[in-house]
Amino acid sequence: MLDALQVVTTVAFGLMVGVEFSVAFVINPIFNALPEDSGQLGRAHGGRMLGAVMPFWYIGSLVLVAVWAIAGWHHDGTGLVVTAGALLIVSVVMSLLLLVPINNQSKTWTPENRPEDWKEQMHRWDRFHYVRVAVLVAAFTLLVAALV
């Protein structure tokens, strides 16, 4: 049973990390290179779409990591799982305090109503997101290390 939980947790969390990584290093650079207002419109749509899904994915991943830590408490690697869970909590707190407020504004922007400093706000969101991705990659690495 613990083996199945470890696989499900690792796959679910790994897919989430992959999505966040691709947003940082693939999707947003593509949007930034699009002409005229296309990039801003794409980022707004992505903010709406991922903003609806990611809270469930983050909380679901956190629950799975917590269950793994509890179920495997007396097994090797539990310290790594607990540390991964702590890093995931850090990423959730970062999201709520730093990224979500910017995303909640930017997902409603159009070329007609966006603020003058919208590019600066997007660059700030990107910088926070790079840090969040680094935290998530570290957490995922710890989960994988706990498997071996």
Rank of each mutant, 00 (worst) to 15 (best):
Q121W: 13
D117C: 09
W125Y: 06
V131Y: 11
L99P: 00
W109Q: 02
L98C: 11
P115K: 03
R132N: 10
W109H: 03
L99A: 03
Y130A: 08
Y130G: 06
E116M: 09
K119W: 14
F128A: 10
A138L: 12
Q105H: 10
V135S: 07
W109S: 02
R132H: 06
V100C: 01
P115A: 08
N113Y: 10
P101R: 01
A139L: 08
W118I: 11
Q105D: 14
V100Y: 01
L99T: 05
A138V: 08
N104G: 06
D126E: 13
A134E: 05
W109E: 09
R132I: 11
E112I: 02
T110I: 08
Q105N: 10
K119L: 13
K119S: 15
D126A: 06
T108N: 14
N104F: 07
S106A: 15
T110Q: 04
R124N: 07
K119N: 15
Q121R: 14
F128H: 14
F128Y: 15
W109M: 02
V135L: 11
S106I: 11
V133M: 07
N103R: 05
P101C: 01
A134D: 04
L99H: 04
A139W: 08
R127H: 08
E112H: 09
E112L: 05
L136W: 04
L99Y: 06
W109D: 01
V100D: 02
K107L: 12
R124W: 09
R127A: 13
A139H: 06
